[in-house]
Amino acid sequence: MCSADAVLDASGLNCPEPVMMLHNKVRGLDAGALLKVIATDPSTRRDIPKFCLFLGHELVEQQERDGTYLYWIRKKADA
């Protein structure tokens, strides 16, 4: 995966904290920026794709490695 413009490490946090942190982090990024999210809460497999769909961001890729969930999210272009 290509290098991210920013990283959000939400390891050890449980719902709803990872998505709340994601919302704040995305808000501070430029349009089109790529954010890598690291999480350990299995509920992020449901919550992060829904977050992206609802707000119009692109979920570029998601992976699971040994109980760690990785997501690459591209912030939507400004309208």
Rank of each mutant, 00 (worst) to 15 (best):
K25T: 14
A39V: 03
A77Y: 15
R74V: 06
R65S: 07
D66F: 06
L8Q: 10
C2W: 00
C52H: 06
N14W: 11
L59K: 05
C2E: 09
D30A: 10
S11M: 04
L59T: 03
D5C: 04
G67Y: 00
L55D: 13
S43K: 14
R27P: 07
V26F: 02
T68L: 05
N24K: 06
A10I: 03
A4E: 11
G67R: 00
M20K: 03
V7F: 08
V26D: 01
G32S: 05
E58W: 01
G56T: 13
L55T: 15
F54E: 15
W72S: 00
V19T: 15
S11Y: 07
D78W: 14
S3Y: 06
C15I: 14
T68W: 03
P18V: 03
I48S: 02
C15S: 15
K50E: 15
L35G: 05
H23N: 04
E61V: 05
D5A: 04
Y71N: 02
R65L: 08
G12I: 12
K75V: 08
D78A: 15
P16A: 02
R45V: 14
N24F: 02
G56M: 10
L22R: 00
E17G: 03
Q63A: 10
R27M: 11
T40M: 03
A33F: 02
H23P: 00
K25Q: 13
V7P: 08
C15K: 05
D78C: 14
G28D: 13
V7Q: 10
G28W: 09
R27F: 11
T40Q: 00
M1P: 14
A10M: 07
L70F: 15
D47G: 07
E58H: 12
L8G: 09
V7R: 10
R45Q: 14
S43C: 15
P49W: 02
C15F: 14
T68S: 09
A31N: 06
D9L: 08
G28Q: 09
V37M: 02
A31K: 01
E64F: 06
A79H: 15
V26N: 02
D5R: 02
L59G: 10
P42F: 02
L8W: 07
L22V: 03
L59P: 11
V7H: 10
A6D: 12
T44F: 05
G67D: 01
G32M: 02
G32Y: 06
L53M: 15
R65V: 12
R45P: 11
P49Y: 03
L13D: 11
K50I: 15
C52D: 06
I48D: 01
Y69N: 00
G56F: 09
A10E: 03
F54P: 13
P18C: 03
V60E: 11
R27Y: 13
Y69F: 14
K76H: 13
C52G: 08
V26W: 00
D9G: 11
S11I: 11
K36Y: 10
F51P: 04
L70E: 14
Q63T: 12
G67V: 02
A33I: 00
L35N: 00
R65D: 13
A39E: 05
Q63G: 10
M21C: 10
L29N: 06
A6F: 06
K36L: 08
L8I: 13
